[in-house]
């Protein structure tokens, strides 16, 4: 499903149907997921179609949030001054892009997940986050690749007390998404105090995977800070 395609393509997988068809320059883009349909006309000769996972904060409406909050269904308790890695799942949003040598144009984003938002922090100073619930896995879990991706989270407790983690907040602008058969991210959570931590992402390309198109880079938005500070705790 994820990958690069020529401009005439037909993909059918589960309840997803995606196609670009037509003769010469005049083509038609059609996508259907569940009951939602999108149809567009493309006038193009060159270029290719890229279908890949994108930062999961765009749907149902862009601009509402730029953060993803993954809530753990069971808390993770970590002892002082230790490091550990766990795997979580995150929701998938799939982007469809037209790409040539110079430019990247996003033509569609869709998801099979049911979006939900949550407030992290108090109403007067908190932030709106896209919400997702995940179990905690010690090994790479099986995922429905069109529905969820895998997030490896390296947790480092730099504090001198035990800390219980119930949620992790990740900033979309920092995300580095990779894909092969499934979507993958590698993030870290460094616990600085009982209710203070910072999340970052690793940019190293995992073996055998491809780098997803970064919507924020495509928009020309610069990355000034690379860490998100979780100042309202982990519970």
């Amino acid at each position: 499903m994820f990958g690069e395609y020529k401009l005439n393509v037909k993909i059918e997988e589960e309840d997803l149907k995606l196609l670009v068809e037509g003769r010469g320059k005049r083509k038609r883009y059609y996508r259907k997921v569940g009951e939602e349909e999108v149809e567009k006309f493309i006038h193009a000769d060159k270029g290719k179609l890229v279908v890949c996972p994108v930062e999961p904060v765009n749907l149902p409406k862009e601009g509402v949030s730029e953060y993803l909050l993954v809530e753990l269904d069971k808390p993770l308790i970590i002892e002082p001054k230790t490091e550990s890695s766990v795997y979580l799942k995150f929701p998938i949003e799939i982007g469809v892009f037209l790409v040539d040598e110079i430019d990247v144009e996003r033509i569609d984003i869709f998801t099979k997940t049911m979006p939900k938002y949550i407030l992290y922090g108090p109403p007067e100073s908190g932030i709106i986050c896209k919400w997702w619930n995940s179990s905690v896995y010690n090994e790479i879990p099986e995922v429905d690749k069109l529905y969820e991706g895998i997030l490896r989270l390296d947790v480092k407790n730099a504090y001198e007390e035990w800390v219980e983690i119930k949620k992790v907040v990740l900033r979309a602008i920092d995300m580095k998404i990779f894909y092969d058969g499934y979507a993958y991210m590698h993030a870290s959570l460094k616990i600085l105090k009982k209710s203070l931590g910072e999340t970052t992402f690793f940019d190293r390309l995992p073996r055998g995977m491809k780098r997803a198109i970064d919507i924020y880079l495509a928009k020309g938005i610069k990355r000034l800070e690379k860490k998100f500070v979780m100042e309202w705790g982990f519970k």
Binding site: V64, P115, Y117, I118, L119, P123
Partner: peptide, 10 residues
């Protein structure tokens, strides 16, 4: 609960 914009918390 089914509406995306109705916050889970608060």
């Amino acid at each position: 609960e089914e509406h995306p914009f109705i916050l889970k918390e608060p």
